[in-house]
Each structure stands twice: as C-alpha cells, then as structure tokens.
Design a protein around this nucleic acid. Structure first.
Length: 566
RNA sequence: UACCCGGUGGUGUAAUAGGCAACACAACUGGUUUUGGUCCAGUCAUUCGAGGUUCGAGUCCUCGCCGGGUAGCCA
C-alpha cells in the first residue's frame, strides 16, 4: 500500500468523500491538515494504528500534513515516558510528523485567554458546585437540568474568581469554570459543560505552572483550531460531543473552524483494545509486560515480529466506516503472511524433533545440498544445507497409523526430504517404558538426489528436516490468540474478562534449527518451511541461546482436514 | 423515557448526479506445485421490515423494528 498515492479512480470511504466535498466547496482555499492526538497515559495498540493510518493517510492522500499532538490536559495520569514510547511506535509504523509535534499543554495560555473572552461575552461562569452537586443539577436523560446557583454571576465577579482559580487560591475541586449554554438541552453534553477544573498536580511538561486544567472538550477543538486542522478525525464515542465542539468554535468566533468527523474504532476478534484492560493484564501478570508478543500493543507486535507494513495494509483493507464492526483476526494474520511471503527467507526448523537414522547412509559421511532461499524471489538466491546419516524431522510428520490422506512418513512408506533424498521408514524405535517413539530407522534411495526418483515413481509426501550434525537447539515460542473467546469482553455475569484468556496462548518448544539460522539478527523474519514465520526475540535471546517467536503460522490445509474429520 | 449514530452475504468494505449489488477475507469444489505454503479457476446476497415517490430505489420520503452511544471536575 502506498498511502501517499492519490486515490483518484479508487473507491473512497465516507471521510474521503466528505473531505472532497469540503475541498470542492472551499474552491481551492482549503489545505487538508489532520492530527493524531494520543493522551500520553499508556502505550499504543492496534486500535491506535488504525487512527494513525487514517490521519496520516488522509493527509498524504490530499497533499496535506498530519500533526502529532499529545492531548496532555490531565496531569494526574500522564507521563513523559509515554510520550517517548508513543513517538517511537508511530515511527516504527512508518509515519513521520516531521516538525509538527505539539502538545495541548502548549496552548494552556491561549485557552485561558479564550476562556476570559467567553466570560466577557457572558458565555462562561465560575460555578461553586462540587462534583456531586453538578451531577445532580445536570438532570437525567428525560428530565432537564437545573441552573447552577452561580449561573448568573456578573462578568466582573466571574473574571475575578476565574483569575483567582488560576492564581491557585482555591482548593482542588472547589470550583469550576463552566460554559453557559443550556441546562435544558436534550444533549447532556451541552448542559453547561465544565471547561476548567482545579487540580494542583505536577504536569509532565508545565510542572506546577497551572493549578487549573482544561477539560477535553474545551481543549481539543481549540487545539485543532490553533494548529489549523481542517478535519478532526476521531472515534465514534465523540459523536455526542460534536455539538459542543462546534459550540466552542462558533462562540470563539473562529474563522474556518475544524470539522470533526467520527469513525468506528478498530475491533478485532480474540483480542482487546482497551487501555484499561491491557494494563490489567500487565499488572496482574497475565502477560510478561506491555511488549509481550501476545499483546495487541505496537510494542508487543513489534517484538512478535509483525511487520509494520502488514499492520497498515490490514488497516487499509478493513476500511473505515461508522458501523461498529469486529474484524476477524484471520484478516490480520493474512495481511502478515501476504507481506512476508514474497520477502521472508526460507529456512528449516523442526519444532518438535524426532530422530531419524538413515541406515544405508555411510556413517561419518555428509554432503551439502543447495536449497532455495525464497521461491517467490529468485534474487534471494540459495544456501547450503548439510545432509547426514542422522537427521531430525517433525514429530507431526510421522504416524504409526496413517489416517486417510496422510501423505507423510508412515512405517513402510516413502517420503521426500525437501531438496534431499526420498526415504522409507523401516523401523520404529520406542522407549520401552513410555512407549514414545524415539527414533525412526529409515533407508534412503541414493538415486533420488534432489528428491527426484530415477524410475519416475511418485512420492507425494514431502517433509522438512535438519541434520543432526550442524543443526542447533533453540527455544521457539508458539503464540496463539491471547483470548480463547472471539469476544473477550463478553463474560457471563460476575465474571472477569480474564476468564476468557487462552491458557495455551504461549507454548514453548525446544526446536532444532538449521545452521544458517545461527547468524539470524534481530529484525530479520524467516519462513520456517511448512511451519510459519519466525523472528528472533530481541529481549530473551542471548548467551544462553537463541529464542525465536512465531509471528504467524502458515495456512495449514492438512490441519483443516484433520479438524473436519473430528 | 430524551438526544445522537448505525443496520448491504459467514465477516468486513463498496456501489460515479436513483440505473445489472462489486471487492477482499472465510467456507466449499477443482487445478498447478519438490512448502498440504504460494498461485489459478469456480460456487456462495433480491441490501432489517412495511408503505410511498419514480419507467427504475441499497441509495430519496414516511412509519416501524433491531443494535450502539450519552447523565466524569477522564480522554
């Protein structure tokens, strides 16, 4: 996907259509500017990726820019470390805000001045009600609210009180500045919303400069306006706030106010995109951290080995709409495979090794065999793999009793070892106590070099293998969905969403990998043939040995057949 | 019960000024293949309901039905 490519002839989503209408009616005088406005109180996840792709993508499509603006209006939970982490994640995804890095806290003075402007116009007042009283005065869905006793304070008194709020004269929570709109409005958000609250907290950027902080509604639209945002794209939960968003820009008498357009946030099966719940998983130790490869956080997916391009392609493919949909996780997995298939170098990795001895292959002998690095890309070249008398193959590629359509190794049957020889299983050696198969004694057809039979007989089964001589042992982590349920948030009453966690979301294997993998470096992604895509775990690989993460499995139609039979 | 927003195959997203419901994924068939991968071909919906306007409605109007959101000094 190329986000910078104008989509002239292509289909547009409802946001693009709205923008094109605005562009047309502005008659050349409008420049498209968007913004991605995270609150620095947590790490970015898959849901944010969609917002990032939309905002940066739209800007690129229409030749505009996208600002990165931290919405840091609530110091009680925001930290600089999140600012840095968020910047890193956005860059990793492949987007660049250039010099357009902003903070809502950078506008505190302008916001304050605007507040006085509204007070002077008689459109804002200082209210002495406490939070509980404000709630009671607000009324309900069906009953209108009651005016605050302070609603008709004079301008001078309001100004005086507001300045004293700003000077820090009052205790936290004792007063607010509220917009004077309409306590009888059917839109609850318009019933004299709070603009400022008193909060003597240490702000990550302005420290103790301000004892009052603007509310989201008062800060966001105005920040948009200051930055010249043309289209403020946000998720559906802000739809109810749009009348207020517009009220502020109207009453501030701003020219060319930004237009807010809401879209449905990304929802994916078998996972969650709730900051609060993800935090719970981390804090309760259900995962190893924010970067646990099973987490839908960008840090987690990065460590897992998911290519950022796949995430962007996925976001593009699933589209943008106002319908609250849930995307099937297989779509993400597919996007990952689609991106990796033409790129990832092929290697052999045996996850669950079982020893094979080629009884008619001379002891001590070995040979090197050429293997293709990527059949999808001839430029990727070839590599040498070692063949020897003792090999490892996948336990799943052997059955004592072959089910129907099982093409792999079975006593008395022949399979091809990819790029090497055809072998026949002659004998099964078991552990006398456990009955477990510990070794397969096979014979090879010396005429079948490269897997081609000299007599033209067909050998349908083909399996991967590694030599016992130069393969090495490594830990391989097989990840599955973090949750066993497609909709983890749906729980029977009295239960917690963690009851939906998938107990098998991580399975650790002691694998045997081909020698070429020993030089794997962080960030490289491989396809272990017939198994899946893997990458080196940057955190846990070390002197004690390599650790590989499975990014995603290969499609497995044999598994599908077997599942269907049950 | 007030207000706001939605409803197109199994899942999503489309459908230029109303003009043959398209694309992708999933599923199922089959083909190719030294990865049971990839790739290729085929099958799979009368658009929530009822009226109305119109030569013609997924698109426009009316009335319903169903789903989501909103009563933080969170964002």
């Amino acid at each position: 996907m190329d986000l910078s490519k104008p989509r002239g002839g292509e289909r547009r989503n409802f946001i693009e259509r709205a923008i094109e209408e605005d562009l047309a009616s502005a008659d050349g005088s409008m420049e498209i500017t968007t913004r991605f406005p995270p609150e620095p109180n947590g790490f970015l996840h898959l849901g944010h990726a969609k917002a990032i792709c939309i905002n940066f993508g739209i800007a690129a499509t229409y030749g505009g820019v996208c600002n990165l603006r931290f919405d840091d209006t609530n110091p009680s939970r925001e930290e600089t470390r999140y600012v840095e982490a968020i910047k890193e994640d956005i860059r990793w995804l492949g987007f660049d805000w250039h010099e357009r890095l902003f903070f809502a806290s950078g506008y505190f003075q302008q916001l304050y001045d605007w507040a006085e402007f509204l007070i002077n116009k008689g459109k804002a007042y200082v209210c002495d009600l406490d939070p509980d009283e404000i709630r009671k005065f607000r009324g309900t869905f069906t009953e209108s609210g009651k005016d605050s006793p302070n609603r008709d304070r004079g301008v001078e008194e309001n100004l005086d009180l507001f300045r004293r709020m700003r000077a820090g004269e009052f205790a936290d929570g004792t007063r607010t500045l509220r917009a004077k709109i309409d306590m009888a409005s059917p839109h609850l958000v318009l019933r004299d919303p709070v603009m400022y609250r008193i909060m003597k907290a240490d702000h990550h950027r302005t420290r103790d400069e301000w004892p009052i902080y603007p509310m989201y509604d008062w800060a966001h639209g105005q920040s948009d306006a200051i930055e010249g945002i043309s289209h403020s794209l946000c998720s559906l939960e802000f739809e109810n706030h749009r009348p207020l968003y517009d009220w502020y820009t109207e009453n501030l008498e701003l020219e060319s106010p930004p237009r807010q357009i809401e879209f449905a946030r990304l929802e994916v099966t078998y996972t969650l995109t709730s900051k609060r719940k993800l935090r719970h998983l981390v804090e309760e130790g259900h995962v190893s951290g924010w970067d646990d490869p099973r987490m839908p956080t960008l840090k987690g997916m990065r460590r897992r080995g998911v290519p950022p391009e796949a995430i962007c392609n996925f976001c593009e493919e699933v589209g943008v709409a106002k319908f609250r949909s849930t995307i099937d996780m297989v779509r993400l997995e597919n996007a990952i495979r689609d991106h990796l298939n033409p790129r990832a170098l092929r290697r052999f990795g045996v996850l669950d090794p079982i020893k094979v001895v080629i009884t008619n292959y001379p002891e001590g002998q070995q040979e090197t065999i050429e293997a293709i690095n990527n059949p999808e890309d001839s430029a990727a070249g070839t590599r040498q793999v070692t063949f020897s008398r003792e090999l490892w193959i996948e336990r799943a590629d052997f059955r004592e009793e072959a089910p129907r359509k099982f093409f792999r190794l079975v006593p008395g049957r022949e399979v091809r070892l990819r790029y090497a020889y055809c072998i026949t299983c002659d004998e099964v050696v078991k552990d006398p106590d456990s009955g477990e198969v510990v070794e397969l004694r096979c014979s090879y057809d010396p005429q079948s070099s490269g897997g081609r039979t000299s007599d033209g007989r067909k050998v349908k089964g083909i399996i991967h293998w590694v030599s016992a001589i130069d393969s090495f042992e490594a830990e391989v982590r097989i990840y599955d969905h973090l949750f066993a349920s497609p909709r983890p948030e749906e729980v029977t009453e009295g239960q917690d969403f963690t009851t939906n966690l998938n107990p098998d979301s991580l399975i650790v294997k002691r694998a045997r990998l081909e020698a070429a993998l020993e030089s794997a470096s962080p960030g490289e992604r491989f396809q272990f043939e017939r198994v899946g895509y893997f990458t080196l775990d940057e955190v846990d690989s070390g002197a004690a040995g390599a650790v590989f993460n499975r990014i995603v499995a290969l499609r497995d139609s044999w598994a599908k057949i077997e599942k269907r039979k049950k």
